[in-house]
Structure formats: C-alpha cells, structure tokens
Amino acid sequence: MNELEIKDLNAYYGDFLAVSQVNMDIPDKSITAFIGPSGCGKSTLLRTLNRMHEAVPGGRITGEVALEGQDLYGSGVDPVGVRRKVGMVFQKANPFPSMSIYENVIAGVRLRNKRISRKDADELVERSLRQANLWDEVHDRLQTPGGALSGGQQQRLCIARAVAVEPKVILLDEPCSALDPVSTLAIEQLLLELKERYTVVIVTHNMQQAARVSDQTAFFHADAEAWAELTRLEATLGDKSLPQGTRPPGRLVEYAPTDELFNNPRNKATADYLSGRFG
C-alpha cells in the first residue's frame, strides 16, 4: 500500500521554483531514499511532505501530497496536525537545550499541551528510547541535559523524540552527515528496525548509505532537462503561469527499487551520478 502519494508537486521559494513536477508513490513500512547532488531540492521536497516547507518565508507549493489517501494540502487541513502524523529528524541533531533527556523525549506531548500521567510518561519515554536504541545508554541519566550526549546519541534522542509522537511517517534529512562511521552505522541499524512500524523517508548525500538501507531510491537532479520538461508541460497544458527562474529546478530523474536503480539505472544522468561523474 502507498503511504504517501505525491502528484504534480512544484515547490517554490517566492518566485523561485526549487522542485518541479514530482510524481511519486512512497510505499508504507519501507525506507525510501532521496539522493542527488546538493541543491537539487531533496530537502525541499522532504519538507513538503510534512508542510514544514511553508514555515520558510515564501515557501509554497502547487500539486498534491496525500497521506493514506488524504490530501495534506486540502482546504481546512491544519499543517500542525499534519506534522503530528509526519515526523521529522534534521541534519543537525537539535535536542532542546533547556530540557533533560526525559523532557526531550516527551516534548512532543508537552508541546501540544496534552496532559499525561507520570506513569504514562515514564512508559512513553522508555518505549521511545528503546525504539531509538538509546535506552541502554541513557536510562540511568534521564534527568541530565540532552545536549550533553554525543552527536550520535543526540541524533538518536531526536529520533526518540519523533517516534514518541507516534507518527505514521518519519522524515530524515541527512541525519548522519555530521556523525562518525560508528554512530552512522547505529542509526542505519535503527532505521531498519523503524521501518517495521513506520514509513521512513531519508535524504542522504551518501549513495552507499542509500544502497545499504533503502528499499527504493529516488534520484533527483537540477539540470536543463527540467526546463525542457516544463516547456513540454506548458505546451500540453497551455499553461503559461509556470515560472522559469534563472536556475533550473530539481526534478525526479529516476525512481526505482534500490537494487534496480543502483545496478541497472535506466537514465544516463543517474548512471553518471552513481559512477561519481558529478555531484
């Protein structure tokens, strides 16, 4: 079953079209990787999936993103509610500095002003930390600040914080780019466990990481072909409103099961990127 369905998605910063005409279905309980050279719109696309894109001044989209068949951008849909169903982990681990490890994990609950009994909170904290493979390392110092943990632990704390909200989807934007190889491995291991319960979408600039963990991989690229595609679209739709900036927008070049994409790329740009010829 498809958890997320992206249709004709264009993402803008003001007038600048950053991502153009993305169509893709993301199956549930699996890991989907976004790869591509930097600046091709991976983060932007990822952030449209939980409506964080519009938190940036000028951030807006056209098109559709459906979660379990429901359009996240439909009228009357509250972006805040969307973010409760689609959680996010950022490139740089960002535990709340004024909160302890414990408070960080239940921050999602507290920040929604929900009441929770002490016992439920304790259980939620333990369960979430276990899911993030962090419980054994921190269970005896839950009241210490989250910022005192190592980088890899902080990132897993952020994952625990995200799963504590019990989302359906977890988005991760280059979660390992600031981590050492051992911490990276721990996170990758964790992702494989998380996909039992959640739909995982991960942006990575590390092709090997995509190959190791993901079930399907999407390759994005901001090249002149994106212009051509837009022009064709204009011709067929007669739509002159599609803006054309000075830089080409990112587009989805190829999307396939990971094995297939890595071993048998259909597109020349994909093959060039995978063989390290650019990016």
Binding site: A55, G87, F90
Partner: peptide, 10 residues
C-alpha cells in the same frame, strides 16, 4: 529549535 518544535506538531 523552532523547527524541531514545529515538526513535533506544536
């Protein structure tokens, strides 16, 4: 930090 908060649905 603000983004982390928003992303938690706050």
């Amino acid at each position: 930090l603000r983004e982390a908060g928003w992303a938690l649905g706050a």
